[in-house]
């Protein structure tokens, strides 16, 4: 502020890009080594923020995806192409997300996208005021489906239903809270569908194995009793 007063609006406008002039305070969180708030000149590459200012990821980790503007922004996968995007309003919108609040959340490859989806959905289910149907029921249903994927009781069709449900929420709510869950969730399913499917399949096999083990145990105990 004092700088703007001191040097004038033109100076401020000379920073940043043509359409996203000036600077912005971004808040970087998630799997970075130096999370915090940084004032950046709009238009610098995302990579510079995550790897420069925020200190990069733990050794050996890659960016799996990041929320460019708060947890309600569609995620962008951590491809070189995306990391090289200039961090400004236009570029984020063109990439299919948004700069929003400027809260960059970085997820590394140690995390399952299904877990990220679940955390996000749980947060929005909790925040939903419950007044309009798509948001109230959609956030709740989404959480329940993700839970089901996690315990191995889902089929590939469920992922399709989950994706369609996000589309059914977007644009149909009374306020933007429903969209705030559905946009990132939708993007996660769209961009990481194979991972969803793998996760689901793994969970299903694990639960089958567990069930089998349970059966064995049961048989064992029956035998034991007979002995």
């Amino acid at each position: 502020m004092p700088l703007i007063v001191d040097r004038g609006a033109d100076w401020f406008r000379s920073l940043g890009t043509e359409k996203s002039a000036g600077t912005k305070v971004v808040s970087v969180s998630g799997n970075v080594r130096r999370p915090g708030n940084y004032e950046i000149e709009l238009g610098i590459p995302v990579r510079d923020i995550i790897y420069g200012l925020a200190g990069g990821l733990e050794p050996g980790r890659r960016v799996k995806c990041f929320f460019p503007g708060g947890s309600s922004a569609p995620v962008l996968p951590g491809t070189d192409e995306n990391l090289d995007l200039p961090y400004d309003f236009d570029s984020m919108a063109k990439a299919g997300s948004m700069l929003g609040s400027g809260a960059i959340i970085v997820i590394d490859d140690a995390h399952s996208v299904v877990d990220v989806a679940l955390w996000t959905a749980e947060f929005y289910r909790h925040e939903s005021c419950g007044k309009c149907s798509p948001c109230r029921e959609g956030t709740n249903w989404t959480v329940k489906m993700l839970d089901r994927i996690n315990v191995g009781e889902a089929t590939p069709m469920d992922i399709e239903v989950l994706a369609q449900m996000q589309a059914n929420i977007i644009g149909n709510c009374l306020c933007v809270l429903g969209d705030s869950m559905a946009m990132p969730l939708g993007s996660m399913i769209e961009k990481f569908r194979p991972e969803f499917e793998d996760h689901m399949e793994a969970a299903r096999q694990a639960s089958e194995a567990e069930a089998a083990a349970g059966d064995l145990e049961l048989t064992g105990s029956v035998e034991g009793a007979a002995a």
């Binding site: 149907s133 798509p134 029921e137 709740n140 059914n168």
Partner: peptide
């Protein structure tokens, strides 16, 4: 129509 379908479906969820 798809919005109407969606809202009915949501309302019937619970």
């Amino acid at each position: 129509q798809s919005a109407q379908n969606a809202v009915v479906e949501f309302l019937l969820v619970n």
